[in-house]
């Protein structure tokens, strides 16, 4: 029976991974990119192959197949992603080594894991996540988007997966978006805190917990980012966007201080804070260094750092960074001690 017929049904995976590659790498249509995904038969097969760990051992003469994996990786890595496509046709060993070698560089990796109705009871999240981690192992990316929608207590599994997807890579120029949706279980505060305390240097990190709350935009993950966790993440991430955070006024002030110390183009922060008195507390602080202005200032060049706040019935939206276009009706606080230069 052919491999393809029996094991390559993408339905088996129940998740989708999309890889996008720059056409530039393929030497045509500079700047555009193409996408392929696990919906495609072939990539599902790759996923299966990469779990098959046995390596063909060749006795006697040294052949290219008797090279250890790390040498094959070294050889493959000096080729571009598109130059490496033919390697998949050579043999299974090449195929797996090519996949494991890393250095394959994709513009975007999108990962969707969700439960369809008929799969609800059957899915093994841990096994799926291990597979996803194996597929993405040492694949470089500029942007990664992970969407996970579950109804079980999944903090432990998500912690391992995201840590796998982010560790042992250089991500200083990469953007990571995590969207975690769970209607039944709130995220485990301690587990996620430990995860985020290990976050590597990132260009952008965008985290959204949804589901566990009547308010879809604001949820039970809010306790994860206390002052310490937030300041640690802010230190490592250039552009930070979070919806699950609960700072003290001092924490927010410290964060803004840290923000002001960096060159403006390097940092940008957007957070949603639960509606509380935190912003008022901030303004009431006796040693506040920031001038508060409520009118809309058109000439953004006058301001080097701004802390913007808008408020609706349930949260404060706090932004630190350059004023975006069309920011009318936002209240903002200028960083006074930076005005002079």
């Amino acid at each position: 029976k052919s491999l393809i017929g029996s094991i390559c049904q993408s339905i088996e995976f129940g998740f989708t991974i999309r890889f996008s590659i720059r056409m530039k790498d393929m030497k045509k249509n500079d700047g555009k990119f193409k996408t392929f995904s696990t919906d495609r038969l072939g990539v599902s097969r790759v996923a299966k192959d990469c779990l098959k760990m046995d390596v063909d051992k060749v006795n006697g003469d040294t052949t290219i197949l008797s090279l250890p994996d790390d040498l094959l990786w070294l050889i493959f890595n000096s080729l571009t992603t598109s130059e490496r496509f033919p390697l998949a046709f050579v043999c299974r060993r090449f195929r797996n080594a090519d996949l494991d070698a890393g250095g394959k560089s994709f513009l975007v990796i999108d990962i969707f894991w969700y439960l369809s109705k008929e799969q609800k009871s059957k899915r093994d999240m841990r096994a799926d996540f291990n597979l996803i981690a194996a597929i993405c192992k040492s694949i470089a990316y500029e942007k990664m988007h992970v969407y996970i929608h579950t109804e079980v207590n999944s903090s432990e599994n998500i912690k391992y997966l995201t840590s796998d997807l982010m560790s042992n890579r250089v991500l200083t120029n990469s953007e990571v978006t995590l969207q975690l949706r769970n209607e039944k279980f709130a995220p485990d505060v301690q587990k996620f805190r430990r995860l985020f305390m290990q976050i590597p240097k990132l260009r952008r990190f965008d985290l959204e917990f949804t589901g566990y709350s009547t308010n879809p935009r604001y949820c039970g993950g809010r306790k994860i980012f206390d002052d310490d966790t937030f300041l640690h993440v802010l230190y490592n991430v250039a552009h930070l966007k979070l919806n699950s955070i609960n700072l003290s006024a001092q924490g927010l002030l410290k964060a803004f201080d840290m923000f002001c110390e960096k060159p403006l183009e390097l940092k940008c922060v957007e957070i949603l804070l639960p509606k509380s008195d935190i912003i008022n507390d901030l303004f009431d602080m006796p040693d506040l260094k920031f001038a508060i202005e409520e009118k809309y200032e058109k000439d953004e060049r006058k301001r080097h750092c701004v802390l913007l706040t808008t408020t609706n019935w349930t949260y404060h939206s706090v932004k630190m960074g350059k004023l975006a276009q069309n920011t009318a009706r936002m209240r903002w606080i200028g960083c006074e001690h930076k005005f002079s230069n």
Partner: peptide, 18 residues
């Protein structure tokens, strides 16, 4: 060569987007 023609075809499909 350890691939069956069917498998080769599957790999070709996988790469055809490129």
């Amino acid at each position: 060569n350890e691939f069956t023609p069917e498998e080769e075809e599957a790999i070709r499909k996988e790469n055809e987007w490129s």
